[in-house]
Design a protein around this nucleic acid. Structure first.
Length: 271
DNA sequence: ATGCGGACCTGTTAGC
DNA sequence: TGCTAACAGGTCCGCA
């Protein structure tokens, strides 16, 4: 579920509901996420005014005057605003009850997400300190990728999915951006030219920005009902299409596993 | 330093 | 139809 566009969509959807609100209580039903939710979290948040909701990569940061709540949705997490009398369902692990009879509710079946408390500057926290640039910011460009990749032998797809190189490029978008760029996913990162990285940067920006745009639609499902967004399905070039014809040359798309992740590409269009 | 594989956990689907 | 294995949008950690 949560690729960067999903997380950004979540952020945009939640921000108005949280603005000017205060936390009146916190319920932790199951704190056994990827990392345990700190036992002191309810005490830290109760009675506190909520500040800005921001995003770094796929992390969400909810500002308070005395620190930040760090959130990650992992593979299966979602955040929704519901009325405070809405019964908690399966995998509804945490509620932040707000002072307007509503609740910010975290649901995460696989519990790969996290919810931690950060004192001080979030950028210095170990989980955030070593993150690479945001793919939609100007500092992420061909020169940067070229510099980071020289001498690296890992497949370019793995390189792109390394959050210390660039944040927010998950399995779907790594596959998609490489397809749009005509780059074979197994090519050694260090052997890709500046010109091809230029193309790749454009492709990454394109797929992410496009998906965020579409997120407006997803948003309502995501925050409102419980719909699984199928919004990007029809536009996928390769992801989930192994064996099906390439949209450009009609050759059957190849599918291999790389770092235990499904990797799909056209053997003819991607070199 | 680099690159790989395992680990975390539950739900859904493909295959026998 | 029923059981089992594989796989799923992430990413941190430890090992060679």
């Amino acid at each position: 579920m949560p690729e960067l566009p999903e997380v950004e969509t979540t952020r945009r959807g939640l921000a108005p509901a949280l603005a000017g609100r205060m936390v009146t209580s916190v319920t932790v039903r199951n704190g056994a996420l990827r990392w345990p939710i700190p036992a002191e979290l309810p005490a830290l948040l109760t009675g506190r005014a909520i500040g800005v909701l921001s995003r770094r990569g796929k992390y969400l940061l909810l500002a308070f005057t005395h620190g930040h709540l760090l959130l990650h949705l992992g593979m299966s997490g979602s955040l929704r605003i519901v009325a405070d009398n809405t019964p908690a369902g399966r995998h509804d692990h945490v509620d932040l009850v707000l002072n307007d009879a509503r609740v910010l509710r975290l649901n995460d079946p696989r519990r790969f997400g996290l919810m931690l408390w950060l004192d001080g500057d979030p950028a210095l926290h170990p989980l955030l300190a070593h993150l690479g640039p945001e793919p939609l910011e100007a500092e992420f460009d061909a020169a940067y990728l070229l510099q980071r990749s020289r001498g690296r032998k890992i497949p370019v797809k793995s390189f792109l999915m390394d959050s210390s190189v660039v944040v927010g490029v998950g399995n779907i978008y790594a596959n998609e951006a490489l397809a749009l760029s005509g780059i074979h996913p197994l090519t050694a990162a260090g052997r890709i030219s500046r010109a091809r990285y230029q193309t790749l940067v454009g492709a990454i920006r394109h797929v992410l920005a496009h998906a965020i745009e579409q997120g407006g639609t997803t948003l309502r499902n995501f925050v409102g009902s419980d719909g699984k967004p199928g919004y990007f399905r029809q536009q996928l070039q390769v992801y989930g299409r192994g064996g099906e014809p390439c949209r450009r040359c009609a050759a059957p798309l190849k599918e291999v596993r790389l770092n235990q992740r499904s990797t799909v590409y056209c053997g003819r269009c991607q070199r």
